[in-house]
Protein backbone atom coordinates (compact mmCIF):
# COMPACT_ATOMS: atom_id res chain seq x y z
CA UNK A 1 0.00 0.00 0.00
CA UNK A 2 2.72 2.44 1.08
CA UNK A 3 4.70 1.66 -2.05
CA UNK A 4 1.77 2.27 -4.37
CA UNK A 5 1.12 5.53 -2.56
CA UNK A 6 4.62 6.88 -2.86
CA UNK A 7 5.32 5.62 -6.37
CA UNK A 8 2.74 7.96 -7.80
CA UNK A 9 4.30 11.23 -8.95
CA UNK A 10 1.18 13.01 -7.73
CA UNK A 11 2.08 12.17 -4.14
CA UNK A 12 4.88 14.77 -3.91
CA UNK A 13 2.94 17.38 -5.87
CA UNK A 14 -0.28 16.98 -3.90
CA UNK A 15 1.55 16.93 -0.55
CA UNK A 16 3.41 20.16 -1.44
CA UNK A 17 0.32 22.01 -2.63
CA UNK A 18 -1.85 20.90 0.29
CA UNK A 19 0.79 21.80 2.88
CA UNK A 20 1.26 25.20 1.25
CA UNK A 21 -2.49 25.83 1.48
CA UNK A 22 -2.37 24.83 5.13
CA UNK A 23 0.57 27.18 5.71
CA UNK A 24 -1.31 30.05 4.03
CA UNK A 25 -4.24 29.38 6.33
CA UNK A 26 -1.94 29.42 9.39
CA UNK A 27 -0.42 32.69 8.12
CA UNK A 28 -3.88 34.27 7.89
CA UNK A 29 -4.54 33.30 11.51
CA UNK A 30 -1.15 34.17 13.04
CA UNK A 31 -0.32 37.34 11.05
CA UNK A 32 3.35 37.33 12.02
CA UNK A 33 6.43 37.19 9.79
CA UNK A 34 7.48 34.00 11.61
CA UNK A 35 4.52 32.17 10.05
CA UNK A 36 6.24 32.40 6.67
CA UNK A 37 4.28 30.07 4.33
CA UNK A 38 7.38 28.56 2.70
CA UNK A 39 9.04 27.79 6.02
CA UNK A 40 5.88 26.44 7.66
CA UNK A 41 4.96 24.19 4.73
CA UNK A 42 8.51 22.81 4.54
CA UNK A 43 8.44 21.96 8.26
CA UNK A 44 5.06 20.21 7.90
CA UNK A 45 6.21 18.22 4.85
CA UNK A 46 9.45 17.10 6.53
CA UNK A 47 7.48 16.07 9.63
CA UNK A 48 5.08 14.00 7.48
CA UNK A 49 7.89 12.37 5.48
CA UNK A 50 9.79 11.47 8.66
CA UNK A 51 6.67 10.21 10.42
CA UNK A 52 5.85 7.81 7.58
CA UNK A 53 9.47 6.88 6.84
CA UNK A 54 9.34 8.23 3.29
CA UNK A 55 12.71 9.33 1.93
CA UNK A 56 13.41 12.60 0.11
CA UNK A 57 13.97 10.99 -3.30
CA UNK A 58 10.51 9.43 -3.25
CA UNK A 59 8.98 12.80 -2.46
CA UNK A 60 11.13 14.68 -4.96
CA UNK A 61 10.28 12.22 -7.73
CA UNK A 62 6.94 13.98 -8.04
CA UNK A 63 7.69 17.32 -6.40
CA UNK A 64 10.36 18.13 -9.00
CA UNK A 65 7.57 19.04 -11.41
CA UNK A 66 6.86 22.03 -9.18
CA UNK A 67 10.52 23.13 -9.29
CA UNK A 68 10.27 23.04 -13.07
CA UNK A 69 8.52 26.43 -12.95
CA UNK A 70 11.31 28.15 -11.01
CA UNK A 71 13.29 29.42 -14.00
CA UNK A 72 10.21 30.81 -15.83
CA UNK A 73 9.07 32.43 -12.55
CA UNK A 74 12.45 34.10 -12.08
CA UNK A 75 12.36 35.31 -15.70
CA UNK A 76 8.93 36.76 -14.88
CA UNK A 77 10.50 39.00 -12.20
CA UNK A 78 11.37 41.17 -15.21
CA UNK A 79 7.73 42.28 -15.39
CA UNK A 80 7.46 43.98 -11.95
CA UNK A 81 10.92 45.47 -12.57
CA UNK A 82 9.82 46.87 -15.93
CA UNK A 83 6.78 48.49 -14.32
CA UNK A 84 9.04 50.33 -11.87
CA UNK A 85 11.56 51.47 -14.44
CA UNK A 86 10.20 55.04 -14.33
CA UNK A 87 11.18 55.20 -10.64
CA UNK A 88 14.66 54.01 -11.51
CA UNK A 89 15.01 56.81 -14.07
CA UNK A 90 13.75 59.38 -11.57
CA UNK A 91 16.16 58.65 -8.70
CA UNK A 92 19.11 56.86 -10.32
CA UNK A 93 21.75 58.20 -7.91
CA UNK A 94 19.95 57.35 -4.67
CA UNK A 95 18.90 53.93 -5.96
CA UNK A 96 22.24 52.82 -7.38
CA UNK A 97 24.21 54.53 -4.60
CA UNK A 98 22.14 53.03 -1.80
CA UNK A 99 21.92 49.52 -3.23
CA UNK A 100 25.61 49.43 -4.21
CA UNK A 101 26.54 50.44 -0.66
CA UNK A 102 24.23 47.75 0.70
CA UNK A 103 25.51 44.96 -1.56
CA UNK A 104 29.16 45.82 -0.84
CA UNK A 105 28.40 45.87 2.90
CA UNK A 106 26.85 42.41 2.56
CA UNK A 107 29.87 40.99 0.75
CA UNK A 108 32.52 42.53 3.01
CA UNK A 109 30.75 41.73 6.29
CA UNK A 110 30.02 38.11 5.32
CA UNK A 111 33.62 37.71 4.14
CA UNK A 112 35.04 39.04 7.41
CA UNK A 113 32.66 37.04 9.61
CA UNK A 114 33.33 33.86 7.61
CA UNK A 115 37.05 34.39 8.16
CA UNK A 116 36.43 34.88 11.87
CA UNK A 117 34.38 31.66 12.07
CA UNK A 118 36.90 29.77 9.93
CA UNK A 119 34.27 28.70 7.38
CA UNK A 120 35.36 26.76 4.30
CA UNK A 121 34.61 27.80 0.71
CA UNK A 122 31.42 25.74 0.52
CA UNK A 123 29.98 27.27 3.70
CA UNK A 124 31.11 30.79 2.75
CA UNK A 125 29.46 30.81 -0.69
CA UNK A 126 26.37 29.22 0.82
CA UNK A 127 25.90 32.37 2.93
CA UNK A 128 27.01 35.05 0.41
CA UNK A 129 23.61 35.34 -1.36
CA UNK A 130 21.59 35.31 1.88
CA UNK A 131 20.09 38.79 1.46
CA UNK A 132 18.64 38.40 -2.03
CA UNK A 133 15.49 36.79 -3.33
CA UNK A 134 15.47 32.98 -3.23
CA UNK A 135 15.01 32.72 -7.00
CA UNK A 136 18.34 34.40 -7.66
CA UNK A 137 20.16 33.38 -4.48
CA UNK A 138 19.64 29.65 -4.91
CA UNK A 139 21.13 29.76 -8.40
CA UNK A 140 24.13 31.77 -7.17
CA UNK A 141 24.80 29.28 -4.38
CA UNK A 142 24.56 26.27 -6.72
CA UNK A 143 26.80 27.84 -9.35
CA UNK A 144 29.51 28.74 -6.85
CA UNK A 145 29.55 25.34 -5.17
CA UNK A 146 27.48 26.16 -2.10
CA UNK A 147 24.74 24.09 -0.44
CA UNK A 148 21.61 25.52 -2.05
CA UNK A 149 19.15 24.20 0.56
CA UNK A 150 21.07 25.88 3.39
CA UNK A 151 21.16 29.08 1.32
CA UNK A 152 17.36 28.93 1.17
CA UNK A 153 17.23 28.58 4.96
CA UNK A 154 19.57 31.57 5.47
CA UNK A 155 17.52 33.63 3.00
CA UNK A 156 14.35 32.80 4.93
CA UNK A 157 15.94 33.67 8.30
CA UNK A 158 17.17 36.99 6.86
CA UNK A 159 13.81 37.82 5.31
CA UNK A 160 11.80 37.08 8.43
CA UNK A 161 14.19 39.09 10.60
CA UNK A 162 14.22 42.00 8.14
CA UNK A 163 10.44 42.06 8.14
CA UNK A 164 10.38 42.22 11.94
CA UNK A 165 13.09 44.88 12.47
CA UNK A 166 12.31 47.20 9.51
CA UNK A 167 10.15 49.72 11.38
CA UNK A 168 12.41 49.74 14.43
CA UNK A 169 15.60 50.33 12.38
CA UNK A 170 14.03 53.13 10.34
CA UNK A 171 12.95 54.87 13.53
CA UNK A 172 16.13 54.40 15.58
CA UNK A 173 18.53 55.19 12.73
CA UNK A 174 16.41 58.13 11.52
CA UNK A 175 15.86 56.76 8.03
CA UNK A 176 12.94 59.06 7.27
CA UNK A 177 12.78 59.43 3.48
CA UNK A 178 10.23 56.91 2.11
CA UNK A 179 12.54 56.20 -0.86
CA UNK A 180 15.49 55.43 1.43
CA UNK A 181 13.31 53.24 3.66
CA UNK A 182 12.11 51.14 0.72
CA UNK A 183 15.62 50.70 -0.63
CA UNK A 184 16.95 49.70 2.79
CA UNK A 185 14.24 47.10 3.39
CA UNK A 186 14.36 45.56 -0.10
CA UNK A 187 18.15 45.37 -0.23
CA UNK A 188 18.47 43.85 3.24
CA UNK A 189 15.53 41.46 3.24
CA UNK A 190 14.19 40.89 -0.32
CA UNK A 191 10.54 39.86 -0.86
CA UNK A 192 9.79 38.92 2.75
CA UNK A 193 10.84 42.38 3.96
CA UNK A 194 8.97 43.98 1.07
CA UNK A 195 5.62 42.87 2.49
CA UNK A 196 6.40 45.11 5.48
CA UNK A 197 7.53 47.96 3.19
CA UNK A 198 4.20 47.76 1.36
CA UNK A 199 2.41 48.14 4.71
CA UNK A 200 4.52 51.23 5.48
CA UNK A 201 3.51 53.05 2.30
CA UNK A 202 3.20 53.04 -1.46
CA UNK A 203 6.62 54.57 -2.19
CA UNK A 204 8.31 52.31 0.36
CA UNK A 205 6.69 49.27 -1.26
CA UNK A 206 7.59 50.22 -4.82
CA UNK A 207 11.20 51.03 -3.91
CA UNK A 208 11.54 47.83 -1.93
CA UNK A 209 10.27 45.64 -4.78
CA UNK A 210 12.56 47.44 -7.20
CA UNK A 211 15.50 46.75 -4.86
CA UNK A 212 14.79 43.00 -4.88
CA UNK A 213 15.77 42.64 -8.51
CA UNK A 214 18.43 45.37 -8.67
CA UNK A 215 20.19 44.09 -5.52
CA UNK A 216 19.80 40.53 -6.84
CA UNK A 217 21.53 41.30 -10.13
CA UNK A 218 24.27 43.34 -8.42
CA UNK A 219 24.86 40.52 -5.94
CA UNK A 220 25.30 37.99 -8.77
CA UNK A 221 28.13 40.15 -10.14
CA UNK A 222 29.64 40.87 -6.70
CA UNK A 223 29.56 37.20 -5.62
CA UNK A 224 31.47 36.10 -8.71
CA UNK A 225 34.35 38.27 -7.40
CA UNK A 226 34.00 37.73 -3.64
CA UNK A 227 33.54 33.95 -3.92
CA UNK A 228 37.24 33.65 -4.84
CA UNK A 229 38.42 35.13 -1.53
CA UNK A 230 37.89 32.03 0.66
Amino acid sequence: MMEALTQSIYFGIALSLLCFQLALWIKSKVKSAIANPLLVSVIIIIAILLAFGIDYDTYYNGAKYISFFLTPATVSLAIPLYRQLTLLKKYPKAIFGGITAGVLTTMVSIFLLSLAFGLNHEQYVTLLPKSITTAIGMGVSEKMGGIATITVVSIAVTGILGNMIAEFICKVCKIEEPIARGLAIGTASHAMGTTKAIEMGEIEGAMSSLSIVVAGVMTVIAVSVFANFI
Binding site: G12, S16, L17, C19, F20, P37, L38, S41, V42, I45, I46, L49, L50, Y56, Y59, Y60, A63, K64, I66, S67, F69, L70, A73, T134, A135, M138, I147, A148, T149, I150, V152, V153, A191
Partner: peptide, 15 residues
Protein backbone atom coordinates in the same frame (compact mmCIF):
# COMPACT_ATOMS: atom_id res chain seq x y z
CA UNK B 1 6.89 31.74 -6.50
CA UNK B 2 7.20 30.99 -2.75
CA UNK B 3 5.47 27.66 -3.38
CA UNK B 4 7.95 26.74 -6.11
CA UNK B 5 10.78 26.63 -3.57
CA UNK B 6 9.13 23.96 -1.43
CA UNK B 7 10.59 20.84 -3.15
CA UNK B 8 14.21 22.03 -3.05
CA UNK B 9 13.91 23.44 0.48
CA UNK B 10 12.54 20.12 1.79
CA UNK B 11 15.94 18.83 0.58
CA UNK B 12 17.36 20.32 3.78
CA UNK B 13 16.44 16.96 5.38
CA UNK B 14 19.29 15.42 3.39
CA UNK B 15 21.84 18.01 4.55
Amino acid sequence: MPMLFIPSTVGIMTS
